[in-house]
Computed example of a mutant assay.
Amino acid sequence: MLAFIVRRLLVALPTLLIVSILVFLLQKLLPGDPVLALAGEERDPATIAFLREQYHLNDPWVMQYWYWISGIVQGDFGASLRTNQPVAQLIAQKLPVTIQLAIMSMIFALAIGIPAGILAAVRKNTWIDWLANIVALSGLSIPNFWLGIMLILFVSVRLGWLPASGYEPFFSDPARSIQTMLMPSFVLGTGLAATLMRHTRSAMLGVLSQDYIRTARAKGLSPREVVMSHSFRNALLPVITLTALLFGELLAGAVLTEQIFTIPGFGKLIVDSVFNRDYAVVQGVVLCTAVGFLAMNLIADVLYMLMNPRLRSTL
C-alpha cells in the first residue's frame, strides 16, 4: 500500500507542475494592470517603474514564473498586491472556513443522497423511485443562488430561526458557527445529494442484478442483510470516487453561495482577488485548490484498495 501511495504522489508532481504553469499563464490574460491600481490616482511614472521592478513585472514571463514557483517550493506564496499581506497567511485564514463549509455540505449530501439512492434502487419503478428521481432532478435544476435567497427570506427574515449571513469561527463559538453555516451547507448539499442519489441508484441497480445477490436471497438472508451487507458494499466503490471529487470541488470554494451568505471562504477570496487584479492571491488559491483535488483523488484510490480485496492483490 505504501508503494502504491508513493507512486501516486510521483504521478501527482508533474500534474501540479502543469497546473502551476497554466495558472500562471492564464492570470496574464486577466484585463487591467495591477501596478496602475497600486500607483494611485496620480500614477507617478517613478512609482510605476519602482513597482514593476519590485514585483519583477519587467522580466520575461519565464523568469517571473521561476521567481514565483521557487518561492512556493520554499513555502512563500508571495504577498497580496493590494494589502501586502502574505498570501500564505490569507489562505490559512480562509481555508478553515471553506473546509467547514465543505464538511457540513457533504454531511447533508451523504445523509440525503445515499439513502435515497438505495431506496430508489430497491423499490425500482415504484412511487418511491419516481419521487426520488423527481427530487434529484429538482436538486440539480434549482440554482444555488435562488435557493439561498429563498431560504434567507423564509428561514431568516420571516421565521427568524437562523442568521441570514455572516460567519463565526468554529472554535470561538461552535453553536453560533454551526448556525451560520446551516443554510449555505444545505444549499450546497442538496445539489450534491441529487448527484449522489443518481449514481448510488445506478450502482445499486447494477449490483442487485448480479448472480451472487440472487444466491444470497436463495439462502434465506433477510432483505436488509442482502441490501446492506452484500449489495451496498460493492455499489459503494464508484460512490467513493464521486464523493471525493465533489468534496474537492467544494474545497475550490462555492463562489455564489459564499457571496450570498457573506462567508469569507475561498470562493469569496478568489472573486475579490480577480476584481482587484490581485494576481498573487489568485495564483495561490487556485494552486491550493489543485492540491486539494489531487489529495482527494489519492484518498479515493486508497479507499478503493481498502474496500476491494481484488485490487489489493494487484499491488
Rank of each mutant, 00 (worst) to 15 (best):
L2K: 13
F4Y: 15
F4V: 14
I5Q: 11
R8N: 11
L9G: 12
T15M: 15
I18G: 15
V19K: 09
S20W: 09
V23P: 07
Q27D: 12
Q27N: 15
Q27E: 12
L29I: 15
V35W: 08
G40D: 02
E41C: 01
E42V: 08
E42P: 06
R43C: 05
P45I: 05
T47I: 14
A49Q: 14
V62K: 09
M63E: 13
M63R: 12
Y65M: 09
Y65F: 10
W66H: 12
S70V: 11
V73I: 15
G75H: 08
F77R: 01
L81G: 13
T83V: 14
N84T: 13
Q85D: 14
P86W: 12
I91E: 00
I99D: 01
L101W: 05
F108Y: 08
A109H: 04
G113Y: 04
I114N: 04
A120N: 04
K124P: 03
N125C: 05
N125A: 09
T126S: 14
I134T: 15
V135L: 15
V135G: 12
S138M: 13
L140R: 06
S141P: 06
I149V: 10
L153R: 10
S156A: 09
V157S: 11
L159G: 04
G160E: 02
W161G: 00
P163A: 01
G166R: 11
Y167E: 04
S172V: 14
P174G: 07
L182Y: 10
G191A: 05
L192M: 12
T195S: 06
R198V: 03
R198T: 00
H199P: 00
H199Y: 07
T200V: 01
S202I: 00
A203N: 02
L205P: 14
L205R: 08
V207Y: 07
V207G: 03
A218P: 04
A218V: 02
L221Q: 04
L221A: 00
S222H: 06
E225A: 15
E225D: 14
V226M: 03
V227Y: 08
V227E: 00
M228S: 06
R233N: 05
T241Q: 02
L246D: 11
L246P: 09
L246K: 10
F247C: 01
G248D: 07
E258M: 08
E258R: 09
I260G: 03
I263V: 14
G267K: 07
L269Q: 10
V271S: 10
D272S: 15
F275A: 13
N276V: 07
Y279L: 15
A280G: 09
V281I: 03
V282Q: 02
G284K: 00
V286Q: 06
V286K: 08
L287I: 07
A290Y: 07
V291Y: 10
G292I: 07
L294Q: 12
M296I: 08
L303P: 02
M305E: 09
L306T: 08
M307K: 10
M307F: 13
N308F: 05
S313D: 09
L315F: 10
L315P: 11
L315K: 06
